[in-house]
């Protein structure tokens, strides 16, 4: 059979000579390697105190965005739910009433918006699908919880704080 690459190397099956058979040099070499590792830079990240540096495109937990005036961007079009391969997103739409213009940017909004973080595969398709810049993924990842229902994030968990109220 013709080799696909020229990287293949034949295994050396020659019987070991005396020097190799007493193993001591090989053991010394191994000890040397492990000794060098004693002083290497440690790979450990002491988690709660230190966190790993994420790349700028890291896809963590979702947030629902607001505009500068603190109004919710989401218009409950459902494109994120359609795009979601894991079917983790569900929502209920409602119509904006008179006098709620300071709460919702569009005439239609999501009365209920839930993401099941156990189903979510953090692919980021929802973020890509959103025409209103309403859903974004952040650098935090899902914290532990005692119950499954704790992983279903509602609007309270997802909405970013109102920039107006914060000031």
């Amino acid at each position: 059979m013709e080799a696909l690459t020229n990287r293949a190397q034949a295994v050396d099956r020659r019987p070991m000579n005396f020097w190799e058979r007493i193993y001591i040099p090989a053991i010394m070499k191994g000890l040397g390697i492990t000794f060098k590792h004693l002083f290497r830079k440690k790979a450990t990240v002491r988690f709660p105190e230190e966190t790993r540096q994420f790349s700028p495109v890291f896809r963590g937990l979702h947030v629902l965005n607001r505009d500068e005036e603190g109004r919710e961007n989401c218009t409950a079009c459902g494109l994120c739910a359609v795009a979601c391969p894991a079917e983790a997103i569900t929502m209920e739409a409602a119509e904006r009433k008179e006098g709620e213009e300071h709460l919702y940017r569009e005439e239609k909004y999501a009365a209920r918006y839930e993401i099941n973080m156990l189903r979510c595969i953090f692919c980021g398709f929802c973020e890509e699908a959103c025409p209103k810049d309403a859903i974004y993924m952040t650098e935090t990842f899902a914290p532990a919880n005692y119950q499954r229902k704790g992983f279903i994030y509602g609007k309270d968990d997802l909405l970013i704080p109102n920039p107006k109220e914060k000031a």
Partner: peptide
């Protein structure tokens, strides 16, 4: 500790 250091870890801390 020694096991940790040899394996590029910190060990119990």
């Amino acid at each position: 500790k020694v096991a940790g250091w040899i394996q590029d870890r910190i060990g119990p801390d």
